[in-house]
Amino acid sequence: GGVGMPMGTFVPPKTLWLPAMKGKGLEIMGTFARRAGVIQMEMTLTNKAMSVMTDFAIQFNRNSFGLAPAGPLQVPTPLSPNQTIDVSLPLNNGGPVMKMEPLNNLQVAVKNNIDVFYFSCQYPISMLFVEDGKMDRQVFLATWKDIPNENEAQFQINDCHLNSDAASNKLQGSNVFTIAKRTVEGQDMLYQSMKLTNGICVLTELRVQTGSPTYTVSLKCRAAEVSQCVFQCYEAALKN
């Protein structure tokens, strides 16, 4: 599982983004984190080649939410053979936008003195959930009513053993805010909101049946295509 931060933010474990075989000896493992409101691309670079590596730089292809490096990739060079280094690259969302498939896909180019290497990775959309995403209750009710039923997506999360308060607390660590809670016929219904960096708001209803490990998440958003990615974040946050 991932590493829980003090604020409760879920950080997925690093995965292999660039195998050394494809990077002429450069291996990159990475993940994404949101720390104090800043999206970070966190990478472990390993030099598995027989010569030193210098002159690192990074560039993103245009992507769904305009993610872009907020500064240069800082690698203390040279990176000697067998040396491993952790680097953290702050991102902003001021870059060029192009809808990707899947929506959270990011195409990356990393350059060093040997060559330019390309890889794709996917970021949890929760990296884009802003700290002030708690919607006013009246606005929530009006928006919920206003978004057409066709825009509602429903998913199930199995094998979840938290009660609704624990679930609410965990999600709040990822900037998913509970606005209201009601209990109807033994089901806790949590009404929650989140806001993405580009202003898109997502409204959800999380149903937790006492004694049942299966949750039901219903998502309403004017941009319905984000629902699948948001659901993935619910699942990751609640199961880790």
Partner: peptide, 20 residues
């Protein structure tokens, strides 16, 4: 009064979702 109204509105929403 507004707050009471909102409390009531959420209760109605939850009720309507459980028993459509």
């Amino acid at each position: 009064e507004l707050e009471d109204g909102l409390d009531e509105a959420f209760s109605r929403l939850a009720e309507s979702r459980t028993n459509p």
